[in-house]
Design a protein around this nucleic acid. Sequence first.
DNA 1: TTGTAGGCGTTATCAC
DNA 2: GTGATAACGCCTACAA
Lengths: 343, 343
Amino acid sequence: MRVSIKDIAKAAGVSHSTVSRALSDSSLVSAGTKERIQLLAREMGYSPDAQARSLVEGRTRTIGVVVTTMTDPFIGGIVQAIETTAQDHGYSVILASSNDSSEREIAAAETLQSKRVDGVIVTSSRVGVLHQGRLERLGVPVVLINSLVQHRGRYTFSIGVDNRHGGILATEHLLQLGHRRIAYVAAPDDRSDSMERLTGYHEALARAGIDPDPALLVRGTGRAGGGERALPMLQALPDPPTAVFCYNDMTAIGLIHAAHAAGLSLPQDLAVVGFDDIVFAPYVHPPLTTVAQPVAELGKGAMEMVLSLLPDGNSDPDASTDRTLTGWLVARASSGRKRYPVG
Amino acid sequence: MRVSIKDIAKAAGVSHSTVSRALSDSSLVSAGTKERIQLLAREMGYSPDAQARSLVEGRTRTIGVVVTTMTDPFIGGIVQAIETTAQDHGYSVILASSNDSSEREIAAAETLQSKRVDGVIVTSSRVGVLHQGRLERLGVPVVLINSLVQHRGRYTFSIGVDNRHGGILATEHLLQLGHRRIAYVAAPDDRSDSMERLTGYHEALARAGIDPDPALLVRGTGRAGGGERALPMLQALPDPPTAVFCYNDMTAIGLIHAAHAAGLSLPQDLAVVGFDDIVFAPYVHPPLTTVAQPVAELGKGAMEMVLSLLPDGNSDPDASTDRTLTGWLVARASSGRKRYPVG
DNA sequence: TTGTAGGCGTTATCAC
DNA sequence: GTGATAACGCCTACAA
């Protein structure tokens, strides 16, 4: 049988309220009984029932984390940081993956609502059904990671990396290496971060006085397969690119794989830059140049942002603002060394 | 304000018990009122409070999932499958990462206990403080993934891949390719799965009439760095190996990286086989030969196992047994084609 | 300093 | 069919 405060009360010969007070270290209990009860609780193997406590306190100390899929190592890193930070603040994380299915998204939102999570963090740059409608109606703080806030609710904020800046970093890096025909392998159009990276790419090109060639913009999937399929499309061009900036590392990895298969040697025949700096980036052959995202900070920051948005938090929601972190370029071999254009 | 069944009761002019019945589609309510109440509940935006329900029902429909780190893509895949399966059965997953710190492990166990999870799944082959002592004392079913059950509790079971068999598959593959000097890069000794893979490796060698050379057994970390550091140790041997079997893909990836840096060409100079078949394996250069684990099945199986162990589950715990799934070899280029030994 | 009583939102067991 | 009433485990006025 599970032991409750009543059991302890009986054993200690006091009322259950005294036990409750003693366990919460209230000053309204004599030091003697307090100690006696605390000892007894330990001996009897007492564990407070979070359910019951939540019921009366009106909060669960639980944060819902919505992800598309845990399979993505980038997301895994973020969730890791989220969970660790939650733990440090005495909160738990309840996981809900949408698998990119709106059915599951809705189910997830309902579950989170029933479980009465105190807040929600969404890791997905996808502009889904859920993120803007359903979640806001939960009436709890919502923090979006790497995603645009569309309908600004009183408790909806975002934290993300400066994607435009990242796009500039990547593109300028390639420009500095002497490249003029630089392709961008995007994610599907509903990923806002991909669009922002594209903007940065365009901006860097413009600064260098280069007109963007629409043929050099191809659409991937955000996964390796997208990169693999993008390569032949680019190679088939009458004037193929000498460099490629990929939406993310997975795309770059797929593209590099296809390049090897096509007999290209990297970075001589094709320079490649990714985005994210996932754990594999250094181990790609050749090691992948990429725009690193502060994964741990994103997760930690997101968690701290929801916590600060909580009713009891010291901060005022109206004073809260979106946070933008900056990524940085990690130059490895896949983009090569300085290249002097022929002629 | 959040709407409860009492609010609905007031609005409908009935008692809250009738509302409760109507919402649970009980046959003890007239079809008319039932419909009326259900409509009203929808209109008023009612969402059942899982906390309150759990309190009276004595179960939370929540499963705790303990992982070392979500950063590992293999673990990510498993958690993904666990969560999806949970969702399909109307359960939620509460995440707890230990970060390989026993402090956090203990904290995690306490949280899970307070949150009154109905069961626990542990993904870690590490023989930690927590897994055998603390978790069993929670008094709920515990399922270990890829880990040995040490103290068999009435509700403690495991599901995992046949690591010995996997070790045999990998080693025999290399033997068939003509290799005689095959190294094994292990994980730390407290990882039971690494030990089992080693056993398989030894067994395959024995069958081929080869005495295992202790110098060919080096210890990695389970992460890329371990593989990187293992390579020079092996190369420094007077009679270096022509093939390496690695504890897992991350180790293999690190080792391959070091091999490239050392100017070796793979698989000619060194054949490499990994374990796990993580999402990157096909994209390693050369593509990584590996023993695939049925990740999705492991996660799904683990979840189904805890669910079946639940008090209301149809199955009898005593009839439950550990499950062992079998992996399979995925031959890619890193191990090369058949090799005819010189001489 | 301690005890009593009420309530958090449900479900379940009684009567009616 | 429906409505009181009592639990589940905890917290917290209010009394004593």
